[in-house]
Amino acid sequence: MDHSKKTVFRPALNFEGGALAKCLEQIAEQNRVLRIVRAALPASIAEHAEHCVISASRLVVYTDSSAWASQIRFFQQAILNKLQESGQQKIVKVQVKLYSPLPEFKASPAARLPSAETVQALLRQVDENSEDVLNRALAKLARTLSKRLEN
C-alpha cells in the first residue's frame, strides 16, 4: 500500500492559462518601459516617473504631483524618440497622469467610556425585567459599560 501523500496545492504559476505568469510578464514589460522612459529624462525628473502602462498606441506615465507631470510632459518627444529606438514602434502618444498614493492608515481612537457615575445612574433608571425592548437594551448596555469600567 502506498502511503505517500500527494500535494494538494500547486504552485501559482502552474494554473491553467498561466494567469499569474501573464501578469508577471506584463509587470516586467512595464518595468522595462519605465527604465526606457527614465533614461530619456534628466535624473532629477526621472525619479518622479513612478509607473508606466501601455494602452494601445499610448503610453501612460504616472507621477506623484502636477509639477513633475508638467516637467515630464515637456520631455514627451524625447520619451517617444527613446521608445522608438528601443523598438516600441506602436507607441505614438505619451500621456502623463497623477496617481494619488494610498492614504495612511489611522487607527481609530479608543472608545470613550462614560464616567462611573453616569453608568450607575443608568443602572438605577432601568428595569431589567421590563417587557419594553428599549429598556432591556439600555439595561444590557449599562451592565456592559459597568464591566468595562471595572477592567
Rank of each mutant, 00 (worst) to 15 (best):
D2M: 09
D2E: 12
T7M: 13
V8H: 11
F9N: 09
R10T: 11
A12V: 14
L13F: 09
N14L: 15
F15Q: 13
F15G: 05
E16A: 12
E16H: 07
E16I: 06
G18P: 02
A19K: 10
A21S: 12
K22R: 13
E25N: 06
E25W: 00
Q26N: 02
I27D: 03
Q30M: 12
Q30E: 15
N31W: 08
V33Y: 04
R35N: 07
V37N: 01
L41A: 07
A43T: 10
S44V: 08
S44K: 08
I45L: 14
A46D: 06
A46R: 01
E47R: 15
H48C: 05
A49P: 00
A49C: 08
H51A: 06
C52R: 01
C52S: 09
C52F: 05
V53I: 13
I54E: 11
S55E: 15
A56R: 13
S57K: 11
R58S: 12
L59N: 06
V60A: 01
A69D: 06
S70Y: 11
Q71Y: 11
F75A: 02
F75H: 15
Q76Y: 01
L80R: 04
K82F: 01
K82A: 15
E85I: 10
S86E: 14
G87T: 05
Q88G: 00
Q89Y: 02
K90D: 11
I91C: 01
V96C: 06
V96E: 00
K97V: 00
P101I: 08
L102A: 12
A110R: 11
P114V: 08
A116P: 05
E117P: 00
T118F: 04
V119G: 02
V119M: 04
V119H: 03
V119P: 02
V119A: 03
Q120T: 11
R124F: 04
Q125Y: 05
V126W: 04
D127A: 04
E128D: 04
S130P: 01
E131H: 08
V133T: 12
V133D: 10
N135Q: 15
A137R: 10
K140W: 06
L141T: 13
R143E: 07
R143W: 06
R143N: 10
L145R: 02
L145P: 02
S146A: 09
K147I: 10
E150C: 01
